[in-house]
Design a protein around this nucleic acid. Structure first.
Lengths: 141, 141
DNA sequence: TTAAATGCAAACGCTTTGCAATTGA
DNA sequence: TCAATTGCAAAGCGTTTGCATTTAA
């Protein structure tokens, strides 16, 4: 089911601004920030406003059409929910983001449920640390 | 080695404000925010300033005396490094924070190192999800 | 004595909000 | 038509910064 349909079915209007935000979210090849969405929107429609971007994101979040991810940058990034879940390894030295397979977190999720009765939401988890290259550099230096 | 010693050895002054912040950090039974530290400091010394709290925290961070943790609240929380590492399960429904044993994350850390060459920093990791009680409630409702 | 540290106020970056004007259905 | 949505400007929040004053060593 498309974002457009979900909006309509929940009684929300399909405004040009919303359609542009949704399009930008779908075209993004990675998690995208509100500011980046706003820039894209603004380049296509001069009177675009960042408030509208935030309000649209809030709406899409409520409808479970987008999810948030926090990479510890002091801002949140957004991602189309239907694109599936991602896990990331963020290198503290060079900033590189490594995608992590879902299976790598499966054992953890199972452990938490069994031992703590806790249903962990590991969608868009970001783990910080140091990537192999930066570890090599450090050792060399 | 105490925080006071580390400060001295690195050529930093032991001001009353710093000592109060350090004391509050040590007395805190959980991760504490800058605002909370400021309130404690202010109650003991009226002219205390939140800039000083932030500057002290920045310094202690650089000296590896405190570590930061992000619970996704829009602010960062601080913790005395020597008190050891904590992992937390944060319930998205009731806000409860469950402490997680170190061993629960050991397999994940090993996997990330072996498969991705990534040295994950899992100190103060916060995993959001739903606790057992809230899961029960949801099922009942 | 003097560089380091503080207090204050102002600015910062990201996000939210009040309100009048606009617009999709 | 008219409630939902927007644009704008202003405010909110946590955090940082410039600068004159104070202070630990």
């Amino acid at each position: 089911m498309s974002c457009h349909q979900v909006l309509r079915e929940n009684g929300h209007r399909l405004t040009p601004q919303r359609m542009l935000v949704i399009e930008a979210l779908h075209n993004a090849d990675r998690h995208i920030s509100a500011e980046e969405l706003y820039k894209q929107l603004h380049s296509r429609y001069r009177y675009a406003n960042i408030s509208t971007v935030y309000r649209t994101l809030e709406l899409l979040k409520q409808l479970n059409l987008v999810t948030e991810a926090d990479f510890g940058e002091g801002r949140v990034r957004y991602h189309v929910a239907e694109k599936g879940h991602h896990h990331h390894l963020v290198c503290r030295s060079c900033g590189k983001v490594i995608d992590l397979e879902d299976v790598a977190l499966r054992p953890l999720k199972d452990t938490l449920l069994q031992k703590y009765g806790f249903d962990a939401d590991l969608r868009h988890l970001a783990i910080s640390g140091k990537c192999s290259e930066c570890r090599k550099k450090k050792r060399g230096a």
